[in-house]
C-alpha cells in the first residue's frame, strides 16, 4: 500500500514509523540534471568522493573504485569538484 492510500485505521499508535531507514526507497536520483562519470585511468581510488557525498550514495565496488548510485545521486557535483585527480566529470542528463 502506498502512503497516499493509507486509511486512518492503517496508522500505528501516534503515527510512529517502525521501519528504520524506510526513506531509502525514495528515488532522489530523479532530481538530477547532471551525472558524475569517472575516468578510471585517472582515479586513484582515494575515496574522497565517498566521504563528501551528502547523499551517502557513493560506494566502493569490488575493484576498489567508488561508484555513485544513480538511484539516489542528485547530481550536486561535489565529487567532481573535490576529486584530487580530476577523474570525475559531470555530464548533462538527457531525456531517454
Amino acid at each position: 500500500m502506498s502512503a497516499k492510500q493509507k486509511g486512518w485505521k492503517d496508522l500505528e499508535l501516534g503515527c510512529v514509523v517502525t521501519e528504520p531507514g524506510s526513506a531509502s526507497s525514495t528515488k532522489t536520483g530523479e532530481w538530477r540534471s547532471e551525472r558524475p562519470v569517472r575516468d578510471n585511468t585517472k582515479c586513484i581510488k582515494c575515496g574522497i568522493c565517498y566521504i563528501y557525498c551528502p547523499e551517502a550514495c557513493i560506494n566502493e565496488d569490488e575493484e576498489g573504485y567508488f561508484e555513485a548510485d544513480l538511484y539516489y545521486c542528485k547530481g550536486c557535483g561535489i565529487c567532481a569538484h573535490e576529486c584530487p585527480s580530476s577523474a570525475i566529470t559531470m555530464i548533462e542528463e538527457e531525456e531517454e
Binding site: K6, G7, L11, C15
Partner: peptide, 8 residues
C-alpha cells in the same frame, strides 16, 4: 495523511 492521523 494529516486528516487520517487526526481521525485515528
Amino acid at each position: 495523511i494529516y486528516s487520517e492521523a487526526k481521525k485515528a
